[in-house]
Design a binder for these strands. Structure first.
Lengths: 338, 338
DNA sequence: CTGTTAGCGCTTTCAG
DNA sequence: CTGAAAGCGCTAACAG
């Protein structure tokens, strides 16, 4: 009453059909190279025995697994789940599978995941990197596995990157807010230890500066990119009654922020303007619809997949000329701004 | 200018350290069984050479990959991405990785994915099945790979199932709608070819019947579970001006439906009540907040992962006594109902 | 057209 | 404490 049956293999099929394993292999992969009667015989045995191919042998032999590893923060963020969707669908078309890893931006988890992905011999790795495992990533590259960074630049790492122009887009969006008449904008930033966090904050402050507005430290609050931090930082921001607009650095913090505003009966857009990075589905269906800076997430995933597959197949892994693809994020002004 | 360097292996380390490969293997996995000087020697060589372990050999030898396959509809649905998150995190704690496959509920894609997951020798498969690949799934089980269905029952398949009481929950929710005074409820159903679609529709109609309401065919529209179908079906529903409430069978159709209502200036909850299956994050942050039937998604994923891992490790794959775990979905009444 | 054999990288007896 | 050798499942080169 243990396993229903032992796993069948090519050797057993060969034994039953009274041929060599090579012939069975050919019958499976190059049937035209096998005499019709032999083929029939073998196919019968395969049929009867429920044999299914085991690709581990081949993977070992060819050192190719047709598997790509993805390390990102969390599927909880639409941003990443959309990217993952783009990667998976694109990779699938080229016969690659995806091993999905959530790092929660924890360097130790990330380290383990990098290690295990290599050990499982993925053909390539796509990663939204923290900045704490540079040596390991380099080592993986040295072992012939290409790496593509997504969403965040990894300074000091020679690899392809698929990015969005965080700083410029934030700068432009902030400028628009100012043009609309907002003068006291509260900014909910991600940690500056994250590449995107730092870039967006810079874009924000330099837009204020260039427009002759002073930068009030009280107007800048730091969250951890997750929901709760959006709530608490918003509570702090609204202690300043003059704040007329809130600008969130990511979707989850926006969710928390909106809840805080709602709990405090602050109406959007009449009492408070609202803008956030990321374009989760809910933003266009909420009431009022939320203005956003939308990143081409699915496309980023698709491009990352194509990029890594190109590296895999070209076998040029030296990164003398790393690709840096920067896509444009575009502001979509809906009904949360006056 | 090709690959930076050939992948290192245990044999090469052995050669350089002037020991046998067995000793290198021991140095890596059972260092206490190796003399200190030898160990040091080997570790030096490993260090110098950037050697990293290749687990393919081991996988082949032990026929264990520490990898679980997941086949589901799409990450686009919060429902599934939350389940995936639950699976991944739970599996990770037990040293399993996740290969993620989006089937879009297309039987042909599903078939290929099942095949490839087996070929890659995943230790187990978690699947939200269409109902078109029964024989293949059985064959996979026969080959010793346990399968756990999630979200949907697969009639005729002996396997573990992690489910939600779709019918009862829909019945209860419908009863509540009626108790609140709604008499003309429009229902946006998923295809009845989906287990959940059929169950929810049944729950809905039998609640109407048991409450003495007649079932008007015009009030029941069928979508395909994706956004656009929620929009178009809603347009049809609101041709019936007496409809006082819309009840959606899933989150994406709800999104489309809300947009249609908004585009037609129909106010929730004053002009139209609104209820949907699934509890995406946006439901509690939109305005008005949307009443939902919430499934314990993360938990479903966690339980599915635990269930499949238990099967994997117990090696009892006969499914004489398949597990059927049914969790309760609970209605959360927010502000979209009067 | 078919069979024999080597070998992918690793662990694990079994000897020494 | 260390080494030799078998073997996991498969393909491909070579021989017949």
């Amino acid at each position: 009453m243990k396993k229903i049956s032992k796993k069948m293999n090519i050797t057993e099929i060969a034994r039953r059909a009274n041929v060599s394993i090579a012939t069975v292999s050919r019958a499976i992969n190059n049937p035209e190279k096998v005499r019709k009667e032999t083929l029939q015989l073998i196919q019968n045995e395969i049929e009867k025995s429920n044999y299914m191919k085991n690709s581990l042998g081949l993977q070992l032999r060819t050192n190719k697994t047709y598997t790509i590893g993805l390390i990102h923060t969390s599927l909880e963020m639409n941003f990443y789940s959309q990217i993952a969707q783009g990667i998976e669908e694109t990779a699938r078309k080229q016969h690659y599978n995806l091993i999905l890893c959530n790092s929660a931006d924890d360097p130790e988890i990330e380290e383990k995941q990098l290690q295990i992905l290599f050990e499982k011999q993925v053909d390539g790795i796509i990663i939204a990197p923290t900045k704490y495992n540079l040596e390991l990533i380099k080592k993986i590259q040295l072992n012939g596995v290409p790496v593509c960074c997504i969403d965040r630049i990894y300074t000091g790492l020679k690899s392809d990157h698929v990015l969005v122009d965080n700083k410029i887009s934030t700068y432009e969006a902030t400028t628009k807010l100012i043009a609309k008449g907002y003068r006291h904008i509260g900014f909910i930033s991600a940690p500056t230890s994250l590449f995107t966090g730092a870039q967006r904050l810079e874009g924000f402050t330099s837009a204020l500066r260039d427009n002759g507005l002073q930068i009030d430290e009280d107007y800048i609050q730091f969250g951890d990119t997750f929901i709760d931090s959006g709530y608490t930082t918003t509570i702090k921001l609204i202690q300043n009654p003059e704040i007329d607009c809130i600008f969130c650095a990511n979707e989850l913090m926006a969710l928390g922020s909106l809840k805080a505003l709602n709990d405090n009966n602050i109406l959007i857009p009449t009492q408070m303007g609202f803008l956030t990075w990321d374009n989760p589905p809910w933003a266009q269906f909420s009431n009022p619809q939320i203005s956003v800076i939308a990143q081409p997430t699915y496309e980023m995933g698709a491009i990352a997949a194509e990029t890594i597959i190109r590296r895999i197949t070209s076998e040029i892994h030296t990164y003398e000329e790393p690709l840096e693809i920067t896509l444009h994020a575009k502001m979509i002004d809906r009904s949360s701004l006056c």
